[in-house]
Write a protein that binds this DNA or RNA. Sequence first.
DNA 1: CGCCGTATTGAGCGCTCTCAAGCTAGGTGG
DNA 2: CCACCTAGCTTGAGAGCGCTCAATACGGCG
Lengths: 239, 239
Amino acid sequence: MLKSVNQSTLPHFLCSKCDFTHFCASKETCAEHGKRHLTVSNRTTRLKPNEVFQLQKTKPQTLYAIQHGAVKTYQLEADGREIIRGFFFTGEAFGYEAIYHGYYPFTVVALSDTVICELAYEDVLRVTHTNIDMQKQLLSLTSQQLTMGSYLRSSTAEQRITGFLIDLKKRLSLNEVKSDIQLPMSRQDIGNYLKLTAETISRICSRLQRKKIIAIDRKRIKFLQVDLLEKIAAGLMLA
Amino acid sequence: MLKSVNQSTLPHFLCSKCDFTHFCASKETCAEHGKRHLTVSNRTTRLKPNEVFQLQKTKPQTLYAIQHGAVKTYQLEADGREIIRGFFFTGEAFGYEAIYHGYYPFTVVALSDTVICELAYEDVLRVTHTNIDMQKQLLSLTSQQLTMGSYLRSSTAEQRITGFLIDLKKRLSLNEVKSDIQLPMSRQDIGNYLKLTAETISRICSRLQRKKIIAIDRKRIKFLQVDLLEKIAAGLMLA
DNA sequence: CGCCGTATTGAGCGCTCTCAAGCTAGGTGG
DNA sequence: CCACCTAGCTTGAGAGCGCTCAATACGGCG
């Protein structure tokens, strides 16, 4: 099986600059293969909130890893609205689509102070080609992208929002056990992502708060009853 | 760039049994690397319509390629409804999710008489490891999966349905220039896939027919004005 | 021919959207 | 320090799209 890696090591690559271990099949091989082969382009970019990240338009041969911070990727709809394709946080990487497309079919904007690190395909491929475990690992990562955002397929607004919150909780509290998170994005962004309006996000969140399932203070969300949240997301109950 | 392959060669692998060339970076390397390295498991399975395909539950170490026919993959929702994850047709492959998950998170059912061919990961990895172009090709294929079904993110029923029809037209008429297709799946299946009801599919299709944009006779669909269909799918106009 | 699953069509309802009006927190300048 | 301003969030009322429920039509198959 390709899933030979410990789940807890997944959220990180390892390069000389960052703390990513995504390309390591295990912690043991990290120091060896990561350090030795994955000498990634030293380029890092610092972004302020709302700043647009300039992607390689001409020769898209890099994956982008988020060293610290958060970004959203989006396309513009014909009517000018944003279609948000995804959010990416500390320790995550984006740009897989360009492997096939040959270009990045989206714009990237920072949601907070963010540092982005470039992983040249050449370097990545060199590592993965030398080491078959690394190759499996890269495939696994790309495959993982396929499973992201399954809650987007839920039918009701309640299911999509609760699914989104659960996903966010997992991704924003890496290795930590926290019962609350700080939303990096606006209600409007969430709405554009989940195909709902900002008003609907507000209303449903207020309802979840009235039912004591979560507590909201602006962008801070406390999870009071995760079990109920999961049942709602799964369509097993209504709030 | 990884996209070094001709678009027209993409929909096929090459193995001793099938006619798939997915793992060939170009037609020239096909005969050499495809034939030599990709000695795929000889196992093929024949399915009748509505027959469930038995996936490897214990050791999921294969990709599945469709030699001929059509399948749907789905999960069961808590309330018993099917969540259709995707349709796969002649020349396409599924099972990429298992690379990460370690198991196939869905059930597979044939929509018509279908022949499925197994591609063992070991064989695939052996080929890709020996040949870096093959490796790029596999990555590219997995990456491609990420870009599938973008119309699912459209907001209106009209956009989702027209986007779906355009996608189907491309995938069902490989290399051929046809202005009509035969739907392999029921209205209910389409509805479950697009998160709409079968009635809504019917109504919208009837409307498209009244506007002379398509012509429907049961499962046969003629495309009368593809340009209009694309405008509707893009949200540039209403039917 | 009669049966049954699938598709179509209609009527009414409900969820989410639209539009609009407050509300709150944070920033700016006097 | 406070008045003011602004952007984002919340909340409400009404409209519209897609859903539910139901009746009918159609086709394949025994």
